[in-house]
Each structure stands twice: as C-alpha cells, then as structure tokens.
C-alpha cells in the first residue's frame, strides 16, 4: 500500500474531530474565563483607582494567579481537555504554559530546571509578540514621519 492510499484509509478510520462540539466548548470556556476577568476588572475599578483600560494590568496578574492554582492542583489540563482553545487562548493559558513548565522542570533544580525551561512553551508567544510589535510600531513611526498618518 502506498502513502496516498494509506493516508486516505487513515482518514476514513480515524475518528473525526468533533468540530461543532469543540467550537461550542471553546466558546463557553473562553467566554467564562473572560467573564471572570470582567468581574476581576470591575473589582479593581470599583475598589481601587483604575480605569477600564488601566485595570487590565492587575486583572491579567490576578488571572495568572488563578491559573497557577488550577495548574498546581492539576485542574487546568482537565479544563483544557474539555475547552480546547477556550482555555489556551486567554492569558490564563499563557500562564499555564509558563507555570506547567516551571513545575515540571523543578526536578533539575531552580536554576537549570525552572529558570532554564520556564519559557520553553510560552517563549515563542513573547518572541512573535515582540517582533510583531517592533515591525508594526516601526511602520507606524515611519508613516507618521512622512505625514501619511498621525498618532
């Protein structure tokens, strides 16, 4: 049997990805996490001196704290199996990537293990975020210089 024929057979036999189910669960999980984020955000705006935009900083930190607890007690991976991208896309997913790597590599010590591996999953997000921010800001700066757009 050649590769093409086998690929076709494999597609037929392997269980299909339940796309509708995954999309709905991702929507509900992601929506719920953002809803909790909104409550946290409201909390900071009501009880501290934050505005809608500045409240995002402490909100993000708080959400990552929640992610730490859920990851440490072994619950985040269960939420992820259920919610898919719904738990990966929110900032808690970024936190989970960092925290799970930190816990896992504890056995190699805090310097080589935790320190050296903390960003092995999340590092690419930082890299592309930074590089993209650089390019976008550079283009905008140049365009402003030439008077095409304004800040």
């Amino acid at each position: 049997m050649d590769e093409k024929k086998y690929a076709k057979l494999e597609k037929e036999v392997s269980p299909k990805t339940p796309l509708m189910r995954n999309v709905i669960f991702a929507f509900l999980t992601g929506g719920t996490i953002c809803l909790i984020g909104q409550f946290v955000s409201m909390f900071y705006m009501t009880f501290f001196d934050f505005t809608e935009r500045t409240a995002s900083n402490p909100t993000v930190a708080t959400m990552i704290f929640f992610a730490m607890l859920l990851t440490g007690f072994g619950q985040y991976k269960k939420i992820a199996q259920f919610g898919g991208a719904g738990s990966a896309v929110p900032i808690t997913g970024f936190g989970n990537a960092v925290i799970s790597a930190a816990i896992e590599h504890k056995s190699e010590g805090y310097v080589l293990g935790v320190g050296g591996n903390m960003f092995k999953l999340a590092g690419s997000v930082i890299l592309f975020g930074v590089f993209s921010a650089f390019v976008v800001a550079l283009i905008k700066t140049i365009l402003v210089k030439f008077g095409v757009v304004s800040w």
Partner: peptide, 22 residues
C-alpha cells in the same frame, strides 16, 4: 459589558479552536 465580554472572549477562542482543528 459582562455579556459582551463573555461573547467576544468566547468568539476569539472559537477562532483559536478553528486554527487548532481546521
């Protein structure tokens, strides 16, 4: 704002799920 946060956040995650699965 709570309803909008839920729906918009959920929809961004749906985009992520489609990138995973499709």
């Amino acid at each position: 704002i709570f309803i909008t946060a839920f729906i918009v956040g959920g929809l961004i995650c749906v985009v992520g799920q489609l990138l995973f699965d499709v």
